[in-house]
Amino acid sequence: MFLQRQVPLAICFVVGVVFVFQDFVPHHDSEQLLTVFTDWGIIITGFASLLGVGSLIQVHWLHIKRQNAGWGYSVVTYVAMVGTLAAGIASGGKAAPDAQTGVMPAFGWVYNYTMVPLQGTMFAILAFFVASVAFRSFRARSVDSVLLLVAAVILLVGNVPLGEAAWRWVMPEGVPGIADVGDWVMNTLNLAVRRAILIGVALGIVATSLKFILGIERGYLGGGD
């Protein structure tokens, strides 16, 4: 219990307090201390990835062993993981074509022709999701929703050159451009609300950090108090 509770709490308290004040001590010894702890952090992060790989292997192995629904996907995961690893080792981690021969290494093929298009597709899907959500949500049901709708249309039209051109063509001389109106909506109306949320969040972060440093909140150690 002592090793599971008191020691982590003591470490959290000492390191927390030291590094709150370290930010105000510019001396090179203080910076050196930060460097040492940063190095530790980087090393721990590196080793933690082994933890992740271990979990991945275990979970998918159990799926295959028990033949859970969709266990075939676990086989695909294994094949992709081992295949990419082998290609990476064979290519020395390089994806760029050889400077002399122009030959693309195996890892380059995996990276450029599998990972890049797959990831690009996933992100591109977001545009379609946003479109369907916008179509569903922007309805003039009340005064509030009308304001939301108008702001959305201004930003959508002002964001693209064709919209800007159409606005200039329709509006008389002297009326600000729609991109400027959009900027005003974002930087004045939207930002005021955003700042209020951010101030609340920042105070929440201060309070939460303080609770962890002082050992008031121990939920992360498991088992509440």
Binding site: A48, S49, L50, L51, G52, Y220, L221, G222, G224
Partner: peptide, 21 residues
């Protein structure tokens, strides 16, 4: 489902303790 191994390790302990509690 986790995206960071260290978060997974900590969550594992938290969930275990919650079940015990």
């Amino acid at each position: 489902p986790h995206t960071y191994p260290m978060v997974m390790a900590v969550s594992q302990e938290v969930v275990k303790e919650a079940y015990i509690e």
